[in-house]
Amino acid sequence: MFPFRDHNPSGRTPFVTYALIAVNIAVFLSYWHLFADPRALNNFYFQYALIPAAVSTGQGFEGLFTSMFLHGGLMHLGGNMLFLWIFGDNMEDEMGHLGFLAFYIMAGLLAGFVHVVFAPGSAVPTVGASGAIAGVMGGYLLLFPRAKVDILLIIVIFFRVFTLPAWIMLLIWFGMQFFGGLSADPNTGGVAYWAHAGGFVAGIALTFPLFLRLGGPRFWHTNDFHPPHPEAKYDRSSIPTIRRRR
């Protein structure tokens, strides 16, 4: 299940969102050649990624920041940038350019700290913008719970696009991270579930002052729980189903 667009274009150009996407892509391309040399790639990650065991001993704090701009492959990068592109523009619209940039960085740092708390002895390098983007998603849930998001559902050879309110899609995603964190050992690598869940909760908390400043529940009801802009209309909302032949 992949979200690929929302129905809520921002009211102004989201320069920071575009810049963050560009910086993440540029950084990834700068060390793309290292994927041909696993030893050099590992050395690079150990230098710039987040190492929870190092932070636990009072070292490597810079990795909390630099790890937010590193990725483990094209799919990792592409998925993160897609989520940032979908949810970042409306958040930037309400927060302002500099406010959104500060929010994004703070959410990423807090997500990294949560990961360290749950895996203090892990020496596995952690990379990715997922924690910061989870914060963006958490803030989006608070401000625009009924915003429409188009989801591509793939089950074997069954493909279909359908539209969900943001709160359903985002709570399903958060639930997957939370229960993934309960079932996985954070010290052995893999997906940093607690960083995702922590970033999501941090995003809600960091957005709450803005929510109150906008009017709190009155902001919801004034805009019917959507971003305060005209909704985009798409000609097609589905992909033909490919049925199995008997």
Rank of each mutant, 00 (worst) to 15 (best):
F2T: 14
F2I: 12
F2L: 12
R5N: 03
D6F: 04
N8H: 15
P9W: 02
S10D: 06
R12F: 04
P14F: 13
F15Q: 13
V16D: 02
V16L: 15
A19N: 13
A19L: 14
L20Y: 07
I21P: 00
A22C: 11
V23Y: 05
A26I: 13
L29E: 09
S30N: 12
F35M: 00
L41F: 07
F46R: 14
I51E: 01
P52F: 02
A53R: 05
A54E: 14
V55H: 02
G63W: 03
G63C: 10
L64I: 10
F65I: 14
M68G: 01
H76I: 12
H76W: 13
N80K: 10
W85Y: 12
I86K: 02
G88I: 13
G88D: 04
D89W: 02
N90Y: 12
M91R: 07
G96E: 08
G99Y: 04
I105R: 08
G108N: 01
A111E: 01
A111S: 10
V114N: 03
V114L: 08
V117E: 15
F118R: 05
A119L: 07
P120F: 10
G121I: 13
V124G: 00
P125I: 00
A129D: 06
A132S: 04
G138D: 00
G139P: 00
L141K: 03
L142I: 09
L143F: 15
P145E: 07
A147H: 05
K148V: 15
V149Q: 04
L153M: 13
I155Q: 14
I157F: 03
F162M: 11
L164I: 03
L164H: 02
L164S: 02
A166W: 10
A166G: 12
W167L: 11
W167E: 09
L170N: 09
L171Y: 07
I172G: 05
I172C: 06
W173N: 15
F174P: 00
F174N: 00
F179C: 08
L182R: 03
L182A: 09
D185N: 15
P186V: 05
N187P: 08
G190S: 13
G190I: 15
V191C: 10
A192I: 01
A192C: 03
G198D: 02
G203H: 06
I204F: 12
A205W: 04
T207Q: 06
L210G: 15
L210A: 06
L210K: 15
L212E: 10
R213E: 08
L214Y: 08
W220E: 01
W220Q: 00
H221L: 14
T222V: 14
N223I: 02
N223Y: 03
P227M: 01
P227H: 08
P230F: 07
E231I: 11
K233I: 13
D235I: 05
I242E: 01
R245V: 11
